[in-house]
Nucleic acid binder design. Structure first.
Lengths: 137, 137
DNA sequence: GATAGGCCTTCCAGTAGATGGAAGGTCAAG
DNA sequence: CTTGACCTTCCATCTACTGGAAGGCCTATC
């Protein structure tokens, strides 16, 4: 594991997949804490910041709101919360994720079904296109 | 199965979980076709419209853009596309969904791990909160 | 030492995807 | 005959970015 301790915003942007501008926005919006500044006033990031940003990136692309992500990250950071409370919130999130996985699986089935019934030739349509039955999840 | 053939927007909103205002917005935005109007100029919907709206609702909540959803629905509607093309696009979507499922599974693991390590008592924090290692997906 | 590129700041504009409200009108049920 | 649900159009607000401009500092290269 390389110890990239003094990364610039550009480097961390490239590593995390989150644009520099969006990282600054997240800082403003309180999703992530205010980044430490070097002597040159540049923001400095570590590997764990890259992890956090990747986490945010993933969660956002999976339909979690910025508020949900913020709360989730706060869950990890806030030492004043009781173990009971953290556990309760975390388990609620797990349940929500299981629901999302089930829904994705349903949509996958619908689309895979469409693909399956397509002959894959030059004919103008797939049999299933006539009816909207495929959306019958 | 009840044959709700002449549903109003309010009824379909309630059944699909998509607010009436949003349904009108989807019509404007070309996500769904212009709804048939009754003699009273009211939009009329059928059961299949409810299915479609539920599909849109799910897909949106899972991080698909409105454009992606629109294209996906067009895939079912457009009879001019070749079977080959439909199959190709459908399979690409299946691959994307599999990726999303994998990411959700990773996030689930992270959060379940946090919950697991919480004692669930009144102590002020969970052991894992000290380090950000839990995000090491 | 000049020039280029990455960073800093602040600010303002625009986009997507809704969501809410107001204005003004129709319609069907109690 | 008054509610309540629908119709229309329009305009404002919100979230979560994304982009650009202005003005300035840092760092590396020619």
């Amino acid at each position: 594991m390389s110890d990239h301790i003094g990364m610039t915003i550009g480097e961390v942007a490239q590593r995390s997949g989150v644009p520099a501008k969006t990282i600054r926005y997240y800082e403003d919006a309180g999703v992530i804490g205010r980044a430490l500044r070097g002597e040159n006033k540049y923001r400095t990031y570590s590997d764990s910041d890259v992890q956090t940003l990747r986490f945010i990136h993933r969660a956002r692309s999976l339909g979690f709101s910025l508020k949900e992500v913020t709360d989730l990250l706060a869950l990890y950071r806030n030492r004043r919360r009781t173990s009971r409370e953290v556990k309760k919130i975390a388990l609620a999130h797990v349940a929500e994720i299981d629901r999302k996985i089930a829904e994705l699986t349903a949509i996958r089935k619908t689309i895979a079904n469409l693909a399956e019934r397509c002959r894959g030739d030059d004919r103008p349509d797939c049999p299933i296109l006539d009816e909207f039955e495929a959306l019958d999840l």
